[in-house]
Amino acid sequence: MSDWIEACAADDIDEEDVLRFDHAGRTFAIYRSPEDEFFATDGLCTHEQIHLSQGLVMGDIIECPKHNGRFNYKTGAARGAPVCVNLRTYPVKVDDGKVFIRMAD
């Protein structure tokens, strides 16, 4: 499956913020950067199963709300303890004010 899935309206997310999106039994995090770009990752921290959508976006970084684990949400790269495993990222496009993500197989 590689279809684009509508996740939310672009206006649903403030700049430098994150929104949770659940689809087909999976959970994702959709980000809007300070530069007004959109990104998507898996919704749960790779350290423990905590929703990143409750965390804090600081520039390129999403910080897990439970243990301060940090990721670069643009690349998915883990940025120090207690996270050691990178986040999976997904392609995102904005069309007619709506945010779409493409899920990998």
């Binding site: 350290h47 423990e48 439970k66 243990h67 303890a81 207690p82």
Partner: peptide, 10 residues
């Protein structure tokens, strides 16, 4: 202690 405190919060 960084890791033990992580567990303490979990």
């Amino acid at each position: 202690w960084r890791w033990s405190h992580t567990r303490h919060h979990t």
